[in-house]
Design a protein around this nucleic acid. Sequence first.
DNA 1: GTAACCATATGCCACTGTGGAATGTCAAGG
DNA 2: CCTTGACATTCCACAGTGGCATATGGTTAC
Lengths: 179, 179
Amino acid sequence: MWVPDRPLNATAASLLGFLHAGPMTGWDLMTTAEVVIGDFWSLTRSQVYRELAAMDRDGLVAAGETGPRDRRPYSLTESGRAAFREWIEREPGPEQIRYPLLLAIAFGRHLAPARLAAFVASHRQVHASRLEEYQALRADVGDALEPFAAATLDFGIRYEQAVLEWFAGLPDLLPLDED
Amino acid sequence: MWVPDRPLNATAASLLGFLHAGPMTGWDLMTTAEVVIGDFWSLTRSQVYRELAAMDRDGLVAAGETGPRDRRPYSLTESGRAAFREWIEREPGPEQIRYPLLLAIAFGRHLAPARLAAFVASHRQVHASRLEEYQALRADVGDALEPFAAATLDFGIRYEQAVLEWFAGLPDLLPLDED
DNA sequence: GTAACCATATGCCACTGTGGAATGTCAAGG
DNA sequence: CCTTGACATTCCACAGTGGCATATGGTTAC
């Protein structure tokens, strides 16, 4: 049926995954992806449109008729389904973390303690908000959540909790103000 | 002194940071970076050499004489120091996480429970090893560590612990085998 | 009604990041 | 001497990012 010219990348494969629910435009896919996988899989509009165009060329998706506002719906083809099935069976690779705040800390001896403390405080605020948001989500719609969505949400909660605990312990490790 | 033609990216800035310790080659910088910031800031050889060439053109570093094995040491210039000082003062951006295993879980309804369980088990193993490694590092040389290095190490430990706790709770959330 | 405004929708570009392949050099051990 | 492996750089294609440009349909305010 479908011979993999080249292996599918995870971003493109995710788009195929979402298209199982029916035809969607790049815009729809972007907003869906942000909500569903955005917390652990970054993507950008440019990338989404680019991958859709490439998958269209490769026959994994098929562009429909352009609607209002240049809205162009893509639908999953049989090749697309096959490519997705192939991808989902592959061993998922290791996670990637890039945290600029940790860079600032690693090079912390070049920074005034108060400045570093300000960075830390600002980030702590962000993580506290995210934790609250996640917990509210679980409290509100947690029971209605598909178990897979509940599992990824739980990851987010545990991650944010760990980061906040780390923040709480930081003052014992670092000079963060002019004591 | 130095007017920023364009803002420095974090990877390039990190190389400047390491060069404060004295002239180093691309290879040296790569291995240093892997050890010191590799756990929260990914980089590749290609990128390191490319950034060094670019910073050389921009006068932020100066290439020395080529030694044995084409070893080319770069040293920090005054412009480079200034650019680094500028960079380190900037508010660090949000962290970036990309975790393919979470993608597999999010699309878990397309996977046989046993297959998903195998993915999970394999990743749990990786995280358990990393946690052990970090803890051994802290136990062995923890006291000798610069506080900034201790702080980033502590982040790694808390992160791995959180992930392992999440793994432990997963069977209650997901169908992971044919019960 | 229509003007102003905003959300929707796509595309382009330059730069950054990734991973593999190619190429060559020195050092050590058999 | 010869093989093997660590060292060292370069090139390339592709993936990912973020900003800018450019529309258009729908809503609101006047």
